[in-house]
Design a protein around this nucleic acid. Structure first.
Lengths: 204, 204
DNA sequence: ACCTGAACACCGTTCAAGT
DNA sequence: ACCTGAACACCGTTCAAGT
C-alpha cells in the first residue's frame, strides 16, 4: 500500500500513539509506535527526524496538559495544586525526566506558570530574595515524589535478614498507597515549614 | 581463548567498567561493557544474570562510596548526613538516575543502610507504622535536590516579558549557589517538620 | 569454572522502489 | 508526497562447545 490518497500519519498521530504507549507503561520506541499505528517503522521517517523528535513532541504536549489552568486562591492552595500536578506529570512520564530536568526552561507557557507562582508567593509575603529559593524547594519536592510514585510496588526486597526493615516492609503499605502516604506527609511538612517561615518574616 | 587460568572477569570488574561508561554519559549496555573489557558479551553472563543486575551492582557501589561511615548521633544528625551524601551522589552521577529509578532495591549493603536508618528513626520515637513513610520523604527529597544540583546554571531563561520572574532571576543566585541555598532551606523545612511530628507523637 | 561463537528476536535508521 | 520492504548495524540473551 504505497502513498494512500489521504495520509495515514501525521506528527499529531505519532505523538498520540507515543503518549498511549507511555501511559500504559509499555516499551516506548519507533517500532512499537509503528505497530500501534498499523504501519511500517520506516513510514514514520516521512514525518519525524527520529526517535528524539518524538520525545520532543511529547514534551510539548505534557506542558500543556498538566499546567493547572488557573492559579487562583491562597498561596498554599496554589503551591499544593502545582505540586500535585507536577508530581503526576513526572510520575506518569518518568523517562522524560532527564530531558526536562537538564534543560533550561524557555517555553513561554511554562515560564508564565512559574511567573504566576512567583507572584503568588511574593504577594503572600515571601521576600523577593527568597521566592526563587522557595520555588526551587517546591520543584525538588515534586520531582522527588514524582519519581517515588513511579517506583516499583516493592521499593525494597531484603534477601538477607534485617534488624527492622524487613518487618516494616511486610507490615507497611505498598505501591501507590505507600507513595501517596509519603507524598501527603511530605506535602504537610512542606506547607507547615513554609507557613512557619512566613510567620517568622512577619515577626521581623 | 577459552577458560583462562586466571579469570578475566568478575562482578567488580564489570561494575567498574559500567560506572566508567555511565559517568562518561556513554551509552550503557551489556555490549558496550564487554567491548570495554575486551571480551565477548556472552562472557558476562558467567558472572551476572543480566543487564538489571549490573545496574544493581552500580547502585551498591555508589551507596558504599557515599554512605556516611558512621550513623551515630541524634536522629536528625543522621538524617542530615544521609541527605547531604545522597544529594551529592545523585548530583555527581546524574546519568544513573534514570537507570536505578523504578528498580526494586535488593543489594544487601543498600538494604543494610536503609535498615540502620529505619532503626535510628524508630529509636528516636517515630512509630513503626510511620518509619517507611518518613524514609520515602527523605528519599524523594534527596533525589529532588540531587537533580536540582545537576541542573543547568540557568534554570529559567524568560524570552518574553514577565511580571516578576525575570527580575528575580537576574537579581538572584545562579548555579551551585542557588541550588545550595534551596537545599539548605529545604533541609531546614524537612527537619523542622519532622521535629514537629515527633513532638506531636509524644503528646499523645 | 569460564570464555567463545553462533544464533535468536529485537532495536533505530536508511534508502530504492512504487504510486 | 507518502508508504513499503529489504537492508544495515546495533541490542540483550541463550546455549552448545571447548578447556
Amino acid at each position: 500500500m504505497p502513498r494512500p490518497r489521504t495520509p495515514l500519519l501525521s506528527t499529531d498521530r505519532i505523538a498520540d500513539a507515543a503518549m498511549e504507549l507511555v501511559d500504559e507503561g509499555a516499551p516506548f520506541g519507533v517500532n512499537a509506535i509503528a505497530r500501534r499505528l498499523g504501519v511500517t517503522p520506516s513510514s514514520l521517517y516521512n514525518h519525524i527526524a527520529g526517535r528524539d523528535e518524538i520525545v520532543e513532541l511529547m514534551r510539548g504536549r505534557l506542558v500543556q496538559r498538566y499546567t493547572p489552568a488557573s492559579l487562583d486562591g491562597t498561596w498554599d492552595e496554589v503551591v499544593e495544586r502545582m505540586l500535585r500536578a507536577q508530581r503526576r506529570m513526572y510520575a506518569e512520564h518518568p523517562f522524560l525526566i532527564p530531558l526536562i530536568v537538564g534543560k533550561t526552561i524557555t517555553d513561554p507557557s511554562v515560564i508564565s506558570t512559574y511567573d504566576r507562582l512567583a507572584s503568588a508567593l511574593a504577594a503572600a509575603g515571601f521576600p523577593e530574595d527568597d521566592v526563587l529559593e522557595v520555588i526551587g524547594i517546591i520543584d525538588a519536592f515534586s520531582i522527588g515524589f514524582g519519581l517515588d510514585l513511579a517506583s516499583p510496588d516493592d521499593v525494597w526486597r531484603p534477601e538477607t535478614p534485617t534488624e527492622i526493615l524487613g518487618r516494616l516492609v511486610e507490615a507497611g503499605a505498598r505501591g501507590t498507597t505507600r507513595s501517596d502516604r509519603a507524598f501527603d506527609g511530605g506535602l504537610e511538612l512542606l506547607l507547615d515549614g513554609l507557613r512557619l517561615r512566613l510567620a517568622r518574616y512577619e515577626n521581623d
